[in-house]
């Protein structure tokens, strides 16, 4: 059972690594999903450890919010691709210009 605590920490840090390291926006969103998965796993583990059932409902709401985030993020990526014709972060320096 205790191996899952380390697994959730590992998933979070792996997602953090990918979020910083990856170049295209779709991969960055994928790694954000990985981070959210790690945090949701920790919520379920705490619900199991304390008998506090509300933590499982928090996971339910995390899923709703992550679905909204992915839908809006992907539509923004599509809109950006139509305007700039790229999804790579090295070529998207609108603010710094």
């Amino acid at each position: 059972m205790s191996i899952y605590y380390y697994l959730s920490a590992f998933l979070f840090c792996l997602g953090l690594l990918g979020t910083i390291y990856k170049k295209d926006l779709i991969s960055i969103l994928l790694c954000l999903e990985l981070m959210l998965g790690g945090v949701a796993l920790l919520f379920v583990l705490f619900s199991r450890a304390t008998g506090f059932l509300d933590a499982q409902l928090q996971v339910f709401f995390i899923m709703i919010i992550s679905a909204c985030e992915v839908a809006i993020g992907l539509s923004m990526i599509i809109s950006l691709y139509r305007k700039k014709n790229t999804v790579y972060t090295d070529e998207l320096k609108i603010i710094s210009e």
């Binding site: 390291y21 990856k22 170049k23 295209d24 779709i26 991969s27 969103l29 994928l30 999903e33 992550s66 679905a67 992915v70 839908a71 992907l74 990526i77 599509i78 691709y81 790229t86 999804v87 790579y88």
Partner: peptide, 22 residues
Amino acid sequence: AVAILFVFVMMLIDLEKYPNNT
């Protein structure tokens, strides 16, 4: 739903332009 949505968006975007994306 979410993971398949990613694949669906990848069909619309030309990701093969820069194959070594890491």
